[in-house]
């Protein structure tokens, strides 16, 4: 992030507009990584709605498959646990 701002470079009144998604990549927290088996995925959306980050979404282009943004995934395993057909595997991070 470079040098920290001086007192008079910060907005007055302890205000911020910077979104966490732009600077705080929580993917580094992860020990287990969720991997979706697309051959079985039914695109039901349960993983999308239950991911607490949220970092799973339906791709807006292509065939609209569900994708995980590993920049933010903390590896909680909720998606794998809640997937009705159990097509998400939690694998140890390298």
């Amino acid at each position: 992030m470079g040098r920290l701002p001086k007192w008079n470079e910060m907005q007055e009144g302890f205000i911020t507009k910077t979104l966490s998604e732009s600077i705080n990549k929580t993917g580094t927290w992860r020990t287990f990584k969720p991997i979706i088996d697309y051959s079985r995925c039914t695109k039901c959306g349960w993983c999308v709605i239950y991911c607490p980050e949220p970092c799973i979404s339906f791709e807006s282009s292509g065939d609209g498959k569900v994708v995980i943004d590993y920049d933010f995934c903390k590896g909680c395993g909720i998606c794998a646990e809640e997937c009705p057909i159990k097509c998400i595997d939690m694998v140890m991070e390298e």
Partner: peptide, 24 residues
């Protein structure tokens, strides 16, 4: 569910709540 998913998100990832936190 799809109707809810379709709604825009106003809560951004990259927050510091614990992995799996229900509050998020």
């Amino acid at each position: 569910l799809k109707e809810i998913i379709a709604r825009q998100d106003f809560f951004s990832p990259g927050h510091g709540l614990c992995a799996g936190c229900g509050a998020a």
